[in-house]
């Protein structure tokens, strides 16, 4: 009964996220003005920043859920941490690919070892390893505890990645500075809508993914009771 309620909520959220993404598409492709020097290729920026935001936020949620798991020992926090890593990793990969697509015409290279790209690569590796770590531990309690510890230790890479373009000289653009934004109002509006749309998608995906994990727990329990 309860499960059906959550699924309904997930369907509604997915519909909302889909509609918001369509609006964000329109804002990014039509509504936002064409950038003066880079031209249309700059429009990928709205996906790049929105997916980057979701990726970073997802890893932050993993940090919070990991701490909550270690404090309470409740399986649901472990599930949230795992789900958020999977979704965050997907978004971080989209961020990297869109960045790379933008860099080819603007920097004349797909990839360069400058501080932001280097720290992003490290961050991706850490969260990929997080998923690997979960696979090599059989005991569920131990798996959850070790993953939580790694989710906390690994998070150190996230603020470093975020601050990399502010601490070191780099060719990566800095849009959000303490003095304000380097954007026209229409561009900023398009960006905000994109960020909101993909955040909505993140929430609905998180809901579905946690639901899936609860279901697979249930299946495991049923299978065990059948074996007895």
């Amino acid at each position: 009964m309860e499960r059906w309620g959550v699924s309904k909520l997930a369907i509604v959220l997915h519909g909302l996220a889909g509609a918001a993404i369509l609006v964000a598409l329109y804002m990014a492709l039509v509504f936002a003005p064409t950038e003066a020097t880079m031209g249309h290729v700059q429009r990928i920026f709205y996906w790049h920043v929105a997916t980057a935001w979701v990726g970073f936020f997802a890893f932050f949620i993993t940090l919070v859920a990991s701490i909550a798991y270690l404090r309470t020992g409740r399986r649901r926090w472990d599930i949230v941490a795992l789900s958020s890593v999977e979704i965050g990793l997907a978004f971080a990969v989209i961020m990297t690919v869109t960045g790379s697509l933008w860099a080819k015409p603007v920097w004349n290279t797909w990839w360069t070892w400058e501080p932001r790209l280097t720290t992003v690569a490290i961050m991706l590796l850490i969260y990929a390893t997080y998923l690997l770590l979960r696979r090599v531990i059989e005991d569920p309690g131990r798996r959850a505890r070790f993953a939580a510890v790694y989710g906390i230790a690994g998070f150190v890479s996230v603020p470093i990645t975020f601050m990399a373009i502010r601490w070191w000289r780099t060719i990566h653009p800095v849009i959000f500075k303490s003095e304000g934004f380097d954007l026209t109002p229409a561009m900023l509006a398009a960006l905000i809508v994109s960020v909101l749309a993909y955040s909505l998608l993140y929430i609905s995906l998180l809901l579905l993914r946690t639901q899936l994990e609860f279901l697979s727990d249930e299946v495991a329990e049923l299978r065990e009771s059948l074996d007895e």
């Binding site: 720290t119 490290i122 590796l125 850490i126 390893t129 690997l132 770590l133 090599v136 531990i137 059989e138 131990r142 070790f146 790694y150 230790a153 690994g154 150190v156 890479s157 470093i160």
Partner: peptide, 19 residues
């Protein structure tokens, strides 16, 4: 306490210690 433990340590440690 994991499977493939000798391999897992560098895999876990290097990305975190890289900076």
């Amino acid at each position: 306490n994991t499977r493939a433990r000798e391999v897992m340590l560098p895999l876990l440690l290097f990305p975190v210690a890289l900076p």
